[in-house]
């Protein structure tokens, strides 16, 4: 069977797992095209007006697969960490798609819900395997294989401080070690935001490439261990129930408290519910307690690249200036 996977949203987190799992069960994977103008246009046409950019784009990716596959894989990602959610739109994603896109093929929309326990991750894939008419043993083998590949993927991101696209995309061949060597004279920036926004080069207007070209070292939440995130969030007065928000905040506070960064770039999509509050907490604390420059990039379908570049460059200039002062002016007392 040909299973379509939209190259959007949790593709950036789970694709290695999905691919290995399905392929081990003799399925053929078809990915939608990388995000582009037409795909965005299609998404805007189909999706309910008030959704955020990544969800609109997701609609475009689904439409892009129609006619090319037997079924489209749109898991209902309710929760990927105990006591946490991603966002209401993820809870309703398969519904939104079915409500808004006509002539869909079959949709595989099995729940992924680890709210109560992580064991459900395994159950989720058992269920998937069963839908594909595979027996327990086949599913188990595929699951184990997929898990190994996924672990290696996640480990690589952390170890080599690379982005998912370095592994997932063919166009991303660069010699990471050269770029990511810890060089004290280089600017160090935290790049915070949902993976499906920052790693989708169309959405983020090639932000990753731009930072690399400018020789800026950056850390994202995918490059840090869970331990760091737990450490970073331990001073929150209430546990954050949005997984992606928690990761951003944890990463930020961990590095801020250790004075390891020169600035923070926070990428959010216009209309993103969780980020409207997460961003506020982040920005307030960064400015108030740590006095570190903070750049908030709010993306929607109207964002122009020129303005985006100007703001990014201005921000990096400020960081350069501050760094120069710190390095060259002795501090007294």
């Amino acid at each position: 069977m040909k299973i379509g996977i939209p190259r959007a949203l949790f593709y950036y987190q789970y694709y290695p797992f999905w691919k290995t799992f399905f392929e081990s069960l003799d399925q053929k994977i078809v990915l939608s095209s990388p995000t582009n103008k037409d795909l965005l246009k299609k998404g805007l046409e189909l999706c309910v007006d008030d959704a955020c950019l990544p969800v609109k784009i997701f609609h475009g990716h689904v439409a892009n697969l129609i006619g090319k596959v037997d079924t489209i894989f749109i898991p209902r990602i309710i929760s990927i960490e105990p006591k946490e959610y991603i966002c209401p739109k993820f809870l309703g994603l398969p519904d939104m798609i079915k409500n808004s896109i006509p002539d869909l093929p079959d949709i595989i929309d099995v729940d992924l819900n680890l709210y109560k326990s992580k064991i459900m991750f395994f159950r989720h894939f058992i269920k998937l395997g069963e839908i594909l008419n595979k027996n327990k043993k086949q599913i188990l083998i595929a699951f184990n294989k997929a898990q190994r590949v996924q672990q290696r993927f996640e480990y690589q991101l952390i170890k080599e401080k690379i982005v998912p696209q370095d592994i997932l995309s063919e166009t991303y061949k660069i010699s990471q070690n050269e770029i990511f060597s810890y060089n004290p004279s280089k600017l160090k920036v935290l790049l915070l935001g949902h993976h499906y926004n920052i790693y989708d080069d169309f959405i983020s207007m090639n932000l990753i490439m731009k930072l690399r070209k400018k020789n800026v070292t950056f850390i994202t939440s995918e490059m840090v261990t869970n331990k760091i995130i737990v450490e970073g969030t331990k001073n929150l007065s209430k546990d954050m129930f949005w997984t992606l928000g928690k990761k951003a905040i944890g990463t930020a506070y961990y590095y801020l408290e250790r004075k390891k960064v020169d600035g923070i770039i926070h990428v959010a999509s216009f209309g993103c519910g969780p980020d409207s509050l997460v961003g506020e907490i982040l920005e307030k604390r960064t400015r108030r307690d740590f006095h570190i420059p903070f750049l908030f990039l709010n993306l929607d379908e109207h964002s122009g690249e020129a303005g985006f570049n100007t703001r990014l460059e201005a921000f990096l200039d400020v960081l350069e200036g501050r760094k120069y002062f710190e390095d060259n002016i002795p501090t007294y007392g």
Binding site: C47, V48, D50, P88, K89, M96, N99, G273, S276
Partner: peptide
């Protein structure tokens, strides 16, 4: 309210 997430899901239906 503008940007209310659960209601946007509802709106799609």
């Amino acid at each position: 309210p503008f940007t209310c997430m659960p209601e946007i899901v509802a709106k799609s239906a």
